[in-house]
Design a protein around this nucleic acid. Structure first.
Lengths: 340, 340
DNA sequence: TTGAAAGCGCTAACAG
DNA sequence: CTGTTAGCGCTTTCAA
């Protein structure tokens, strides 16, 4: 293993000089610098991470805590994790992956052991038990997602309220007056998951403003569950022509059922989905959709961490604006309700 | 920040005693041990990771390198990553997440800086440029997936050859004589991706042994591509009654197309998929399938790393046996070919 | 512009 | 069973 001392000896300088060449924290004569750099190259020197962490009290590591629940949004989580990792590297940080399984103890461990300088928490719960520790702790942290109380915390998330509103606006703009929302599984609403409620708020208030009629139905994924949900919707509101879907596993069943019932998309019925682009593009009808900007969220989380690490501040909530991509699943409302 | 020295002072013992209480590397009188443990608890002491790494030349970190290509198998990758992380924790290791983006330099960095004691590489390419470094390097490594040359490497993977054979056996056992394989996108075969070729080998040789007729068609995902593929298959082999699908994005289109053509699953046609259970269960017909045992792979990779870290050895390829789950998409072959 | 030297907090001989 | 002590490799004052 090559050490800084060896590099120094080969270059005929002191250890501190090599260290300063590396950190750039003091000016080095050009000749010396080049000589040192050449030795580093030739010897294949890499600074020892442990020694560096010990001496500088900085690990150059950001901890990334995965969600407790890993049953939903897996691709989104993955995309965020990759974005966090690649962005972190551009700032010289590595990423330590933690699972929610360890619970609050993980926060204590990271804080106490100095294994990471800061942490990013994904998919926090409304009343997450790790939050008190974060507020109390000395390590900078950024949450991806919004807890109930964001005071004293730094958060990044999609603006789901605006997302809901945007979907409704799009449909309203096409002349749809009767809208049905197919939501996440009932359990998601029962535990008052933040993003689901915020989306619904956005949908409801914009629908109210625009004078649209609205139906919201949570739905378990899968065909059977959705078949019942859909039947109920058309029973109660036969004139429904616009759908907003926020449930990946309901997307394909919905399209299949509409087909079976002879309702053409987008001629008879329009569908806007809130889902990853990949799902929207790969569906049997290319879906008009708003997607969670996973990459952007990961990137922003790291940028805020880096800012906090450099100089305190950067608290507060940052909501990313939703973007709606028009594809083949939405079109003008039919002049009369479709035949049954 | 609480240090070991402070704990020692509070407990009225020397630093080394505290250290040994922590590591268990020498026997401590019960009284002393309990006193020390109590102080650790009371003071909220956590050993400093950097100092520990420096003094012991061990980081207690395993690096996990994500694949270069993140366009496929995302949920599988995620599942492996989580399994790796939770398993690693049970052995006292943390996981450092690296992306393939850094390429071979990442291997050098990890090895050189001692930031991790070992590494796990996911989804290695047949002729991965990181392999020479791993073979040369001193750090233990385990690959998830098989490169072309496995000499001197430790690998864990699903036995895709057996997987292919198992699918064919299942269909043959149900009386199907004409089998079509819908494979990954042509590009996947063109770059000679290991798992795809091995699956095909298994399918072909078992089909040969059992005297089945076989057709293999790569297919891009999506409806349009699959519609053409399917038309060709039934043109060439109208009597095809069994399908093996190894392409997640072809699953739903296939089912929809078969439905459209009036071919009932499983009465007229049987379908076996090689895909995650989640996809198999969530499909419009619950699919008989063989799934990639992601959790098991992650777990085994860590266990082998831990073994290598304790005492060399543990090289060689470990193939996990496939398991076929019968669901609703396969049944006895019809007595006569279905009507067209 | 450079060097010398004092730690950072912990581990692991060595000594009793 | 326990204490003393010499580093691990680096950063960063202090001094020149």
């Amino acid at each position: 293993m090559v050490t800084l001392a060896e590099v120094a000896r080969h270059a005929g300088v002191s250890a501190s000089t090599v260290s300063y060449v590396l950190s750039g924290k003091r000016s080095i004569s050009r000749g010396t610098r080049e000589r040192v750099e050449r030795c580093i190259e030739e010897l294949g020197y890499h600074p020892n991470a442990g020694a560096r962490a010990l001496a500088s009290a900085k690990s150059n590591v950001i901890a990334l805590m995965m969600p407790l629940r890993t049953d939903m949004y897996v691709p989104v989580m993955m995309e965020i994790a990759l974005a966090v990792t690649t962005t972190a590297r551009t700032y010289g940080y590595d990423v330590l992956l933690l699972t929610g399984a360890e619970g609050p103890a993980a926060v204590r461990r990271v804080t106490g052991s100095g294994i990471a300088d800061a942490m990013i928490l994904m998919d926090v719960e409304l009343d997450d038990e790790r939050l008190p520790l974060l507020r109390a702790g000395d390590r900078p942290a950024v949450l991806i997602g919004l807890p109930a109380d964001t005071a004293g915390l730094a958060c990044v998330d999609l603006d789901f309220t605006a997302t809901g509103a945007l979907c409704v606006e799009h449909l309203a703009g096409l002349g749809h007056r009767d809208i049905a929302v197919i939501g996440e599984a009932p359990a998601v609403y029962e535990r008052h998951t933040g993003f689901a409620e915020r989306t619904l708020d956005g949908i409801r208030s914009r629908a109210g403003e625009l004078g649209l009629r609205l139906l919201h139905r949570p739905s378990d994924g899968g065909y059977d569950a959705l078949a019942m949900t859909l039947a109920r919707i058309f029973d109660e509101r036969p004139g429904t022509t616009g759908f907003v879907v926020q449930n990946e596993s309901a997307v394909e069943p919905l399209l299949a059922l509409l087909r079976q019932q002879g309702r053409a998309v987008p001629e008879d019925v329009s569908v806007v989905a809130i889902c990853p682009d990949q799902v929207a593009v790969g569906a049997s009808v290319r879906l008009t959709s708003v997607s969670v900007p996973a990459q952007e969220m990961g990137r922003r989380a790291v940028e805020r961490i880096v800012a906090k690490l450099a100089a305190r501040g950067m608290d507060g909530v940052e909501l990313l604006a939703p973007e709606l991509t028009v594809r083949a699943s939405t079109g003008p409302a039919p002049h009369s309700p479709p035949n049954r």
